[in-house]
């Protein structure tokens, strides 16, 4: 049954691929991806099996997290990426932000869980999913998945249709409802990071796992700010620091039942 479906998918896609040569289309027909869609049920590990060398992931150690650190992380990220602040929560641009347990894990909400977990400031960010629905729906490949698992956003290409915002089950995507540059200028005493651009009005943005830093061999800004709380590393490498931590500690991931394979882990 599994094989049949895969064959069918391939056959159905061949004509489309032949005419368009789309690398994007190949991604959904890639056998490795089909395996990964089922890996939750079969205990496979895609990272180990199909062999990409890098699969970036983030660990958030909730035992070490405090309100102060959460605020510091947000502040550091907002500066690094020139994210303006809005009074209206519906206009907010959020790359990394804190949220309560109840809202972070609504589908597996356990009302009898310990009070300290309920009170923890969970840091939310883009999950850089292995099976990202936002990438599936984007009509122009403005959002795409890099071979290292990073879900990137091309602000030059985004047409602002916001289909990805509807598709993201984590609410991790923000739209530039107004001009961010104007907003930054209005903010009193706002420091601007002149090494990183702003986003134009009318495009969608989100956490980029600090691709501008990791491509230069640096750690993401949030990790650099609070290295005891945030751990960034390569999930594909079974000897990596984050894999060692994951083997030892109990971790949670958001909405696993949707099969998106989020790459952000919460250590509790």
């Amino acid at each position: 049954m599994k094989i049949d479906r895969r064959k069918f998918l391939k056959a159905a896609g061949v004509s489309a691929l032949a005419s368009l040569g789309g690398k994007g289309a190949w991604e959904i027909l890639d056998p490795g991806a089909v395996d990964a869609a089922e890996h939750g049920g079969h205990g496979h590990d895609k990272a180990k099996e199909s062999g990409p060398k890098t699969r970036w992931a983030m660990l958030v150690d909730m035992r070490a997290m405090t309100e102060e650190k959460a605020d510091k992380i947000r502040e550091v990220c907002d500066f690094a990426h020139n994210i303006p602040h809005w009074d209206d929560p519906e206009r907010e641009l959020k790359w990394i932000w804190k949220e309560e347990y109840e809202h972070v894990f609504p589908s597996s909400y356990n009302e009898y869980i310990s009070d300290d977990i309920k009170a923890m400031p969970f840091m939310l960010l883009c999950n850089h999913c292995d099976e990202p629905p936002c990438v599936r729906v984007c009509p122009v490949q403005a959002t795409f998945r890099r071979p290292d698992g990073l879900v990137a956003q091309d602000y030059h290409r985004c047409i602002g249709c916001r289909f990805c915002m509807g598709a993201c089950p984590y609410g991790s995507r923000s739209f530039n409802w107004f001009s961010a540059k104007v907003a930054l200028e209005k903010e009193e005493g706002r420091k601007i990071n002149k090494e990183f651009p702003v986003r134009t009005r009318g495009v969608v943005e989100k956490c980029n796992f600090c691709v501008e830093r990791i491509s230069l061999g640096k750690q993401p800004a949030c990790v650099e700010a609070c290295p005891d709380v945030m751990h960034f590393g390569n999930l594909a490498d079974s000897e990596s620091e984050i894999r060692k931590i994951l083997r030892k500690r109990m971790s949670l991931r958001r909405k696993l039942e949707l099969g998106t394979h989020p790459m952000v882990f919460y250590l509790v």
Partner: peptide, 26 residues
């Protein structure tokens, strides 16, 4: 209604420039 809804209508032809058969919008 689609044109007025999108944030960058001047980039609309990206739909044809970068055709994406995995997207239902295509």
């Amino acid at each position: 209604f689609i044109i007025v809804d999108i944030g960058q209508p001047q980039r609309m032809l990206n739909m044809i420039l970068h055709p994406t058969p995995r997207s239902i919008l295509f």
